[in-house]
Design a protein around this nucleic acid. Structure first.
Length: 504
RNA sequence: GCCCCCAUCGUCUAGAGGCCUAGGACGCCACCCUUUCAAGGUGGAGAUCACCGGUUCGAAUCCGGUUGGGGGCACCA
């Protein structure tokens, strides 16, 4: 681990965090941010914290939390501190790690802000706020809060309280220039005079994101906040809060966004974003990690296949890009194929198991694996590629029409001839001799006797055996199917061409 | 509307002033291999480095502007 690239952290131990919100399944963008934080922590020997941002109780669910944790683990991302399944059983001494369990903390910090005058109660109703916003927009001004409740008298407040209205808490933004040295973008400058006072605690007492993120990053001693670029313009709010609360300012680093094909921020509406969906389709976690790492980062060389360990050795913020990166499905597919082919037959067979029917026993799965290995883009492709093994002879026969039995330039009668001569040649074999190499030489000999090109001769056989014109290698497929079913399928195909063969 | 960020082949990227008549990968095309499809091999098309101006002996690389794209401006995160 090189210490030379260690970003300055004011002498604090390196602690980074991922802070997913369980309002949906693990998003590809969250996964990549988590990966970068993980790699950063690993590379610098820092501590990695998982914090669940579930203050929005209405939208947060335990199912989503489980999906997030489960899929993070699936990717191989691990953390040093975080929540446990059982509440109150956390790992790490900065817990609890669910924000919903830290409400007293936020209330206390909000009270401090109220007391110092850095925050104030706001009694405006959503309707009033909406009206003000519309008005400002109509006048082409920034849609920010007008500070009305800042000018309330004690009598006004007493009146609202008597009405039973509950106030929200607003942070009073000091007009000042906020500068920070972003780890990825360098010096960034904002004018906070342009910001309106923003709500930090809702009228129902629920504290909001910009507030809790700042409180927790301090209380969890986070040294580097590495997050998506969509938070770049929220950072001056966070810094203002940090100063008002007397906290230590962490280093910030904003990584580029993952984009839809149209270059907008990647979204569920336009792209598949749930990691779990990729997982179900049979993308390998190794491929996913490799792919995600290169979406916005490169090692600065021309190497491109990296394991998680190699990545944590090589990863550094210096090589993280500034521009957003379009999610390229073709590239993911290619990488997935690379990783699939890199697996041993045994390993691959194991991973294929969930995609194949129970009717195919483990031994059969292991035997068919080498036949389909280099034809798989996703593990789920195995389902279709091996379907002919579990389909009944009748089902297979129903899959094709006579057209698909015919080699280029040949008619039904000739297909019938090929089919029957193949059946004859194979029928002579015992069960025990039904091996791919034997089958192949028999069929080649039969083709030769007919004076056909082997490829032409194989086409009707392939269709008859698998029901498809595209299939795994023909003779390996026949071997797996066994003598009886091969002969049966050849017979059924023959019946199918029969009438036309006669008519031809 | 205001603020901020960004800009190298279609896409992901290499590139930190001369090594660049811009390299790699994916995708695409052709050929080879071949029992189909893949995989593999070889080759090819594809970027006047968004544009304009400056700095410099020299700029994809530095500076300024323009244009274009994106993000943010919630009692969501």
């Amino acid at each position: 681990m090189s210490e030379t690239t260690l970003p300055e952290s004011a002498g604090r131990p390196i602690r980074v965090r991922m802070a997913p919100s369980p309002t949906g399944p693990l998003h590809i963008g969250t996964a990549r941010t988590s990966l970068y934080n993980f790699l950063f922590a690993r590379h610098h020997g820092g501590t990695y914290v998982l914090r669940v941002e579930d203050t929005d109780v209405a939208r947060s669910t335990i199912e989503h939390e489980r999906d997030i944790i489960d899929n993070l683990h699936w990717l191989g991302i691990t953390w040093d501190e975080g929540p446990q399944v059982a509440r109150g059983d956390d790992i790490g001494s900065f817990g609890p790690y669910r924000q919903s369990q830290r409400m007293e903390l936020y209330a206390a910090e909000a009270a401090r802000l109220l007391e110092s005058g850095a925050a104030y109660h706001c009694w405006c109703t959503p309707e009033e706020l909406e009206a003000v916003r519309r008005d400002l927009e109509a006048r082409k001004e920034a849609p920010r809060y007008n500070g009305r409740c800042l000018r309330l008298t004690d009598a006004d407040r007493a009146l609202f309280t008597a009405e039973g209205r509950m106030p929200a808490i607003r942070f009073r933004v000091t007009p000042e220039t906020i500068r920070f040295d972003d780890l990825i973008r360098g010096e960034v400058e904002f004018d906070n005079a342009l910001l309106g006072d923003f709500v930090i605690v809702r009228a129902d007492g629920v504290p909001l994101y910009h507030f809790v993120v700042v409180v927790d990053d301090e209380k969890m001693a986070i040294s580097h906040v590495i997050r998506g670029e969509d938070h770049l313009s929220n950072t001056p709010k966070h810094i203002a809060l940090i100063r008002a609360l007397g906290y230590d300012e962490p280093r910030f680093g904003h990584i580029p966004l993952i984009l839809n094909a149209d270059r907008s921020k990647m979204s569920k509406r336009k792209s598949q974003t749930a990691i779990t969906a990729f997982r179900e389709q049979g993308y390998l976690p190794e491929a996913m990690v490799n792919f995600l790492a290169f979406l916005g980062w490169s090692p600065g060389t021309e190497e491109e296949i990296f394991t998680l360990d190699e990545l944590s050795r090589r990863f550094d913020l210096d090589h993280v890009h500034k521009a957003g990166a379009v999610f390229d499905q073709d590239r993911l597919d290619h990488l997935n194929g690379v990783y699939i082919r890199d697996l041993s037959d045994e390993q691959l067979a194991l991973r294929l198991r969930p995609y194949l029917p129970d009717a195919l026993d483990d031994d059969a799965v292991l035997r068919v694996t080498p036949l389909i290995k280099e034809r798989l883009v996703r593990l789920s492709d195995a389902t279709e590629l091996t379907a002919f093994l579990t389909e009944s002879d009748e089902q297979v026969a129903a899959l094709f029409d006579v057209e698909q039995l015919l080699p280029k330039g040949r008619g039904p009668a000739e297909a019938a001839t090929a089919l029957s001569s193949a059946r004859e040649a194979l029928a002579e074999l015992d069960d025990g001799d039904f091996a791919a190499d034997v089958l192949e030489s028999r069929c080649r000999a039969a083709a030769e006797r007919l004076d056909w090109k082997a490829g032409d001769f194989f086409r009707p056989l392939r269709t008859a055996i698998t029901g498809r014109t595209v299939s795994p290698p023909l003779f390996g497929s026949m071997e797996l199917l066994g003598r009886d079913r091969v002969l049966a399928r050849l017979g059924m195909a023959l019946e199918k061409v029969g009438p036309q063969a006669v008519g031809a």
